[in-house]
């Protein structure tokens, strides 16, 4: 290996290290909006954005739909969720770093209906996944289910 090659290799490893740091940064997306219809919004850091496909999602985001609205999303661990009309859902917690044994997914459905299809977090650590309504909690053991949070 020539000296130049070695330097290039070192730089490359440094770059890889930086990417690894970035991958765990707070600001990185945890998933994306995939489908929408009617009035569908994501409230992120106090800003309300129209939920168009490709919109990045982050921990703490609130998803809202109106009378004619619906919205579907996927998260990086392959969890798939969708909500129907007049729904409000919060992504309370999202941790997906299996290499560091950091896993967690918490979702609250405040009103309306949702479908939940579990992903890798539920496969690796089922007890780390919780879907809540104002009155009950659903523990997930690798599965698909529908929730109606009627008021």
């Amino acid at each position: 290996m020539t000296l130049l090659n070695r330097i290039a290799c070192l730089l490359w490893i440094c770059a890889a290290g930086l990417m690894a740091t970035n991958a765990s940064a707070q600001d990185d997306p945890i998933g994306y909006v995939k489908t929408h219809a009617g009035a569908a919004f994501v409230v992120s850091a106090g800003q309300s954005l129209e939920a168009v496909p490709g919109l990045a999602l982050r921990q703490g985001d609130v998803l809202r739909t109106g009378d004619d609205g619906r919205l579907g999303l996927t998260l990086l661990d392959n969890t798939v969720m969708s909500i129907g009309p007049n729904a409000e859902m919060v992504i309370d917690e999202y941790l997906f770093e299996p290499g560091k044994e950091q896993l967690g997914l918490g979702v609250s459905l405040l009103r309306g209906t949702m479908q939940f299809i579990s992903g890798v977090i539920a496969k690796l650590r089922p007890e780390a996944v919780k879907v809540k309504t104002s009155t009950g909690t659903i523990g997930v053991r690798g599965t698909r289910f529908l929730v109606n949070a009627g008021n």
Partner: peptide
Amino acid sequence: PKSWVVLMPNEDGSTGRIIVTGE
């Protein structure tokens, strides 16, 4: 009930489990 959850089959035909906790 006004609020409820229903278990559905997975895409591959299998069915998992849910554990529902109230007060």
